[in-house]
Nucleic acid binder design. Sequence first.
DNA 1: GGGCGTGTATTT
DNA 2: AATACACGCCCC
Length: 730
Amino acid sequence: MHAAVVSYLQVALDVPLQRTFDYLWAGPAPTVGSRVVVPFGKQTLAGVVVAVSAELDPARGLTVAQLKASQAVLDDMPPLPADILALCKFCSDYYAWPLGQVIAAALPGALRQPQPWQGGQALQFWQALDVTALLGQLSPRAHKQRAVAEALAVPRSIEQVRAVAHDGGRWLKEWIAAGWVVEAVPQADTAPPQASAHPDLTACQASAVARLNAAQGYQPFLLYGVTGSGKTEVYLREIEARLAHGGQVLVLVPEINLTPQLEARFRLRFPHEHIVALHSGLADGERTRNWLLAAQGRARIVLGTRLAVFTPLPHLALIVVDEEHDQSYRQQEGFRYSARDVAVYRARQAQVPIVLGSATPAIESWRNMREGRYTLLTLGQRAVTGAKPPQMTLISTQQQRLFDGLTQTAINTLRDCLDAGQQALVFINRRGYSPVLACHECGWIASCKRCDARLVLHREDRRLRCHHCGWESPPPAQCPDCGNADLQPLGFGTQRLEETLTGLFPDTPPLRIDRDNTRRKGSLDAMLQQVHAGEARLLVGTQMLAKGHDFAGLSLVVVVNADAGLFSTDFRAQERLFAQLLQVAGRAGRAGLPGRVLIQTRYHDDPFYPQLMSGDYAAFADRVLQERKANDLPPYSAWAMLRAESKTLMRAVTYLREAVQLLRTQPGIHAGAPIPALMMRKANQERAQVLVSSSSRPALQSAMRFLMGELLQKKAPGVRWYIDIDPSEA
DNA sequence: GGGCGTGTATTT
DNA sequence: AATACACGCCCC
């Protein structure tokens, strides 16, 4: 008998508490990064070991008697590697969010449960030691068995075996027991893809690829190219080069909707590579499996949305962030982070190149490029020979009568386009039927009882919905204030536009595509299929349609109302509008057909439009940068937003006022006055916020750390607060 | 007393 | 976040 070995584990748990918890473990010390099951109050939770020691550190302020024992160390996942733990630690510090919750965000759902994951067998691959000998053992008439045996000439997962024959799993088990089949690791096939898969590169593309190929260690690139200039082909070439050297690549895309399309293109290009997708639309089991395959280094291409930025990749050699300006890279709830920024940090940490691609780069990235921190790669022309940038026209809605939101010019142009047998897209930035339901007698407007927001009328199911908290109800039969029975929808959403277009073009029924009718899995794919097949020629949609989809027959885009973004209080609104309109415009005329874009606006005189029409994003971005610098706005000053929610606005504001007092003791920090949030009330919580800024990011970081320490010690009944670093809206 | 909402202390 | 418990309130 030898003495029992006891280790002390520091465990990060998925709880909103700014500390880690200590547990005893009797037995051989687990590796840092291991998944453990621990008791926590009355609960049993899964956590990740972030430190192991042989003695209890007195600085933890605990006695051994206070510690509980960890229940289990799980081996269903390889311990989180040190680089991912370090990345999580960095994010926890930078974004002021509990480490345990950052780690939880980095793990797939099944690995956050306090039970071992049972899907491990799906990860194993099996191969026949000697196929000929095995075939000799089998009856010549057992065709199915023989087919399975032949398939096992190369490593196969149990799923692949079952796909060959229904009873494949049973036979596999027998053959493993008999020693005919053994576990095997699939070898990545390094045979070069067929030459046919390689389109010719333009001069710009070739030069971009050459410079990427030459990159060693950490080097960030800004790949700036108009829609249709062939950014994806540049990614593919560089990925191919990095894979050839045995590396793994991480490709981030803004939205789940874009992954199937890109995935298909990648599979076609790399038929022998193990490619996995990682996004929130996957079933838990599949996401866990894909995550583990990447973590084991078996999947060499990871294609995912923002959450994929935390995937362990032992042989990471390249990171690609497609459409790097896209807002979807920011997590807006809970652990607020920017996956693009985290990706850049990760590239530096892993000492690998990173490519940020966009036709309309984020102003922050543009500045990094202008100041020499990012290398600029420009793709100047459209890759399809003969394709020209779309012709943009402004239509003033001040001078023309509107017919249900559409000008006569727009209607005529739509008709010409449809008569010519081409496709058209009508773009509107609002889903639903109409934004407001109003009473013309007394001015009553349907609004949410829990938020400061208007309710949106959805015609299909006759419901009023709050797009902010999800509350819904049937529309009232009469005005609740004055009893008038004639309530009128005001303004336009996708659904009302769909109705209008149905009336205008009875022969070409419009296809509406927005979040409301694409919630079901696969429904968007089915609709896109219709578009590609030419069955749907008139499309109505929100920004969902603006992103990344290639519609060969589309030659006209009508933007119904561009003005909302023009006069916002948010200093980022104009660049978003610019990016959005350029993206939408990029949908028109991608393959040979000349594209036309009509933009309806009341403010056709605004200096914004000439720049948009010229399509010169570089000039626009430079001007925005100058303005930002002159006004000391991000990225020239570092911002953080301290937000507080409470039942009453008073309480939230009072709390923030105290926080401001604390902040003003810190050097180099500017803290404004607490103000009610843009949407003051949301889900029955009053919300207020304080903008904190500094010309020095380290100063801001240390001030926020100081503030956190102080606020955590203060008890504030009924007030919830959090810090939003680099907030996306003011 | 029982059945509730609400507020608050605790979690290693 | 989840949980448990201590209040106060109502029931009649």
